[in-house]
């Protein structure tokens, strides 16, 4: 009996000590971790809209230049002429999500509302194969999307060079990731484009 009580007491004490110390550490680190995650998103958004920012303080540029607009279809991120909310919209960005090869794949698309062309494309989250699919993060690949028309179908060419006006070249050896990206852009951007239209009309 005494031995059993001893076992329970030791386990209880060790667990309490562990829980208390972890709670304390979590309290300290939680705000930092949360800020990191928010910062990562804001940086990707600023880059997709080609807004220059101070890499030490991206929040500053974000707070001044970007307006978050919730719509039924999802959140649109807007920039305005001279950063005045009542002046015309000069840039729109939104986040697209889908399933990648190994895990979730999400990206941020920045658009020029004047001609609905892509201004920038940033990969926010990906778990693709290192050295193959993960290369969608590379600037040379992403830059191909610049100037493409979001309202028309964007085609990621697997064989040979991109020839059509709305074509981009796939990453060699990463057929699935390239095609997944194409699918996510073409299939999930529609509601956001609708939301943009109603914004212009309203």
């Amino acid at each position: 009996m005494k031995e059993r009580l001893m076992i329970a007491a030791v386990l209880l004490l060790v667990s309490i000590a562990s829980a208390l110390s972890l709670a304390a550490i979590n309290n300290v680190s939680f705000p930092v971790i949360q800020r990191n995650q928010e910062r990562q998103f804001k940086v990707a958004l600023l880059k997709a809209l080609e807004i220059p920012f101070d890499s030490e303080m991206p929040e500053k540029a974000y707070n001044i230049q970007i307006e978050e607009k919730s719509t039924e279809e999802g959140t649109l991120y807007l920039t305005h002429e001279d950063n005045q909310k009542d002046l015309p919209v000069t840039g729109v960005a939104f986040m697209l999500k889908g399933a990648g090869f190994w895990g979730p794949l999400s990206l941020i698309v920045g658009l020029d509302p004047a001609d609905m062309s892509i201004r920038g494309l940033e990969i926010f989250e990906q778990e693709e194969t290192p050295g193959l699919g993960a290369r969608i993060e590379e600037k040379a690949f992403r830059d191909q999307f610049k100037g493409k028309q979001i309202e028309k179908k964007i085609i990621v060419q697997i064989k040979g060079a991109a020839t059509g006006p709305n074509d981009v070249s796939a990453i060699t050896g990463a057929t699935i990731t390239s095609k997944t990206l194409e699918k996510i852009i073409n299939e999930t951007s529609r509601p956001y484009i609708e939301a943009m239209r109603s914004l212009n009309n309203g």
Binding site: I7, S15, I33
Partner: peptide, 27 residues
């Protein structure tokens, strides 16, 4: 540490330090 539950105690101790490392890297 009572002999019969030593593994359980080790696991709790190890897990505590691992979570510390994880939070530190994340932050």
């Amino acid at each position: 540490i009572p002999k019969r539950v030593r593994m359980a105690v080790y696991t709790v101790i190890i897990a505590t330090f691992v979570v510390c490392v994880d939070l530190y890297l994340k932050a």
